[in-house]
Each structure stands twice: as C-alpha cells, then as structure tokens.
C-alpha cells in the first residue's frame, strides 16, 4: 500500500509499532549493558562465568559466587533501579512543569538529601530503632521527602502554578546548599570528604536490602504513572486545552510531584546525588518514542536504567583496578549527550 492510500490508522499504527520495536531493542540493550556491568570489576570473572553463575550459582567457586551475588549483582541492580526511578521521575516532572530542564533535582530533592546526609555525617546522631549504618540513608530520605512535602505545599498554595513551583524548587536548592556549606564549615576534614564523596554518588555501597527498597518503590509507583499516561500526553498540547476539558491540573501536578519526589528520594538516599540521569533519560526517550507517554514513561525508565548501568560499567572498566565514583561518569557522559540532543533539536527546528 502506498503512503497516499494508507489510512491514518495504518500510518499511525506503523509509527507506534516502530516505537514498540525500539522499546524492545532498548530492553535488549539494557540486558546487554547489565551483563557487561556484571562482568566488570577487579576479579577476573568473564561473561560466560557471569551468565552461568546467574542461572546456576552452584557451578561457581565460593569466592566467585560471593563476588557475583553479594558484590556485583547488588551494585548492578541498584544502578538499574536508581536509573529507572530517576528517569521516571524526570519525565513526569518535565511534562507536568512543561519544562525540558526540570528534573526531580531542580525541585530540591537531591540537595535536601545531601543536607540530610551532611547532618548524618557531621552530627552522627543516633536514632532509636535505626541501626548506625542506616542513619545516613534514613536522614537523606527524610530530608528529601520533607523537601518534596514543601514543594507539594507550594503547589497547593499556588493552585498549581508551575512558575511558582519551579522558582520555589530552585530556592530550596540554594537553601539546602547553603546549609550544607554551613556543615562543611564546622565539620572535620574527614567528614567533609565523606560528604563530598556522597554528593558525587556511588553505587558500590548497596546491598540486597537497598536494591529491594528502590525496586519496590519503582514497582509501587510505576502503575500510578502508567494510569496517567493519557492525561500527561494530552497536557503536552498545552494547559489551556487541558483546563478547557475540565481536567484538574493542580491535582495532576500534585500527584506527579508526589510520585517524583518519592522516587527521587529513594533513588538518591542509598547511592548519593547521582546527577543528570533525571534530566537526560527523558530527553533520550523522547527522541526514540516521541511524546506519546504510553511509551515515553516506561521508555524514560528504561533509558535511565541503561545510562546509569553504562556509567556503572565505565566506572569500573575505564581505569582497571580503580572504581571511579559513578556520579562523575553520569555527568561526564550526560553533558555531551545533552549537548548533542540540544544541537539535534536545534537543527530540526
């Protein structure tokens, strides 16, 4: 059938099918990068050993089994979960604020998490019923959620005005950064180094419990996001139209910012403030899937997982024997990708 004769439905379906194929390719790519990430590290464990060890742990020697199951798998899985959480939070935030530069981090969630981590590191408080090693992530999570709560309050008070929300988010970033700098002033040199290290972001401290928590967070929130895909797509047509259809945008905005804040808070509280994923993953997904949020929302989660998994691989593979904190790589990888995307978008316009 020629392009002229094809009905709109046929042509539309063809585009959708191509995008679904792309999503499958992306998922396959993700599996490949994930295996690559698993195979990288100081111990010599080849791809073959990895795949064998995944399906039949007993076939590996005890040492290799421990390396695979207790060290590499949690690190690699938390890269997937955190990447997916940030990609998901980023795409929804960008759509709801109609701002391509928005991410959960521009709303202050990560700065608040860093502040929480600083409190934990510098003051080393003890909280009843929370084991010492969990205090840092617990405080980071608490502060991040609290900042999300403040943003939600502003959404409510401003009746959903997106300019006010963005402005308040940026103000929150400055406030948290200032308070964190205050902690730097009074902290011991070692503590400052620890704060800085946490701020950069690092996947290697994750265990199975952390992996489970971040995955659970994504698993709980994703269905709610998917329920809103039609509304989010419609919103890309502009607020005036959505309002004229009787859609409660303030409510939608509240739900999305709640979801994004929780996702971002869980994503960063264990691994540190890993930047750029929440910003870049949605743009990558948009290039592949367009603005139809049925694919864009899960696509951004896939892209986030892929980028962070790739950064995790590079962090181990780039300089043999040294693990570069992954946060450095996400920014180093993320900035050129972002520039490339912006350049392409300009050329297309």
């Amino acid at each position: 059938m020629s392009e002229r004769e094809a009905t709109l439905l046929n042509r539309f379906t063809r585009i959708k099918r191509r995008r679904v194929h792309l999503a499958f390719a992306l998922a396959l790519g993700l599996i490949a990068v994930f295996l690559l990430d698993l195979s990288a590290g100081p111990a010599a464990l080849g791809l073959g050993d990895i795949v064998r060890g995944l399906f039949d742990p007993g076939s590996l020697e005890l040492r290799d089994r421990i390396i695979l199951w207790d060290v590499r798998l949690p690190d690699a899985l938390i890269a997937l979960a955190v990447g997916a959480a940030l990609g998901l939070a980023g795409v929804e935030t960008q759509t709801i604020l109609d701002n391509p530069l928005a991410s959960p981090f521009t709303l202050g969630v990560s700065s608040a998490a860093v502040l929480g981590a600083s409190v934990a590191i510098v003051l080393a408080p003890s909280i009843p019923a929370v084991p010492d090693h969990a205090i840092l992530p617990a405080l980071a999570l608490l502060f991040a959620l609290a900042s999300g709560g403040f943003v939600l309050l502003v959404v409510r008070v401003s009746e959903g005005s997106r300019e006010t929300v963005v402005l308040f988010g940026i103000a929150l970033v400055f406030l948290c950064n200032a308070l964190t700098a205050g902690f730097h002033m009074v902290a011991e040199a070692e503590a400052v180094q620890q704060i800085v290290f946490w701020t950069i972001g690092n996947l290697t401290k994750a265990g199975w419990a952390e992996v489970a928590m971040v995955f659970a967070c994504v698993a709980v929130i994703l269905p709610f996001s998917l329920r809103h895909v039609w509304l989010l797509t419609l919103l890309r047509g502009g607020e005036a139209h959505a309002r004229s259809m009787g859609i409660d945008i303030a409510r939608l905005r509240t739900m999305v910012i709640l979801r994004s804040s929780v996702l971002a808070a869980f994503a960063v509280c264990f691994v540190g403030a890993i930047g750029f994923i929440g910003l870049v993953a949605p743009h990558l997904a948009r290039l592949m899937f367009g603005e139809d949020h049925r694919l864009l929302v899960p696509g951004a989660a896939l892209c986030g997982a892929l980028v962070l998994s790739a950064a995790s691989y590079l962090s181990k593979a780039l300089v043999p024997g040294i693990i570069i904190p992954v946060g450095i790589l996400t920014a180093v990888v993320g900035v050129p990708v972002l520039l490339l995307l912006l350049w392409r978008a300009r050329r297309r316009a």
Binding site: T233, G237, H241
Partner: peptide, 19 residues
C-alpha cells in the same frame, strides 16, 4: 480555547487520540 495547542514534538493525531 484561544491559545492553540503548544508547539511540542507531539503529533496532532497523538494529541487527538490521547484527548
């Protein structure tokens, strides 16, 4: 409404469909 749909990467068909 007076304001036309925003100039996004969305296609008219997608906008109609999602609406």
């Amino acid at each position: 409404p007076q304001t036309p749909p925003a100039p996004s990467a969305l296609m008219p068909t997608e906008l109609m469909w999602s609406t």
